[in-house]
Amino acid sequence: MRFFLPKIHHDHTSFDALARLYAETKELNFNKVEIDLRETYWFDADMCAAFGAILYSLGDRLNKVNIIHIPQEVETILSKNGFLSHYGRLTIPDRWGTTIPYQRFDVEDDHFFANYIEDELLHRDEIPDMSRELLKKFRESIFEIFSNAVLHSRTDLGIFSCGQFFPKKDQLDFTVADLGVGIQKNIKDCTGEKYTPEEAIIWATEEGHTTKEGNLPGGLGLKLLIDFIDLNGGCIQIVSDAGYWQRKNRTTKTERLSCPFPGTVVSIEIKTSDTNTYTLTHEIDAEDIF
């Protein structure tokens, strides 16, 4: 069976295209599946996280996945970040060092993920000059996203990540996708409340809201991320089930996808030229924390 993909940017339209790919293939088992990219003239590299998650679920159902008719430029991008090496091709050297490789993690791989981020993102010479404070905020944000997936996804299939620098645009994109139960189901199981997919994402972004089990408070991670993105001037998108949520220029918008995505995706766009100091408005006394 053959499926076609359009151009893939990290936006609502492309998340919708990937969700449709999932919808069209989710019943397939033991099949030969061809993903035809002849019309995919652009592929935002960080979207490999979401694309890879869908292809991984196909492989998990013992389908044979083959990616065909890849335009040259897209093939170069997806070879540099190692994505195509998962589908029988070679990884080619990333001469300019602008890719953050595509990688899959299990939920127990916290330390492996931490090392990946340190090695591939923070300790490389090619990383754009970011202020010390921005770099710290950025790495905290990435770990918050991963922790969120670890704590909430309830997946055995893994967590997928990928990123890309755009030196000329002073921009860094990073996406984490999981094949978990999604935010809507988590809330339903935790509170009994049935929200629409978009409402569920809004719920999860409210400070103090958590679906963690047991005696563990939570519900700060996404709020911290949003606060950072608001200051940085970047963008954050969350896709879960059929919900799409975007925060940009301190404005939130939600939309519905035509089909559900099989898990949750968090995608951030960081302005690396940001010179905000992120200093606190008042000194915090260590004696006055508790």
Partner: peptide
């Protein structure tokens, strides 16, 4: 060098 709310919550 790096902290998350998930770590501090736990």
């Amino acid at each position: 060098t790096t902290l998350t709310s998930a770590f501090l919550n736990a």
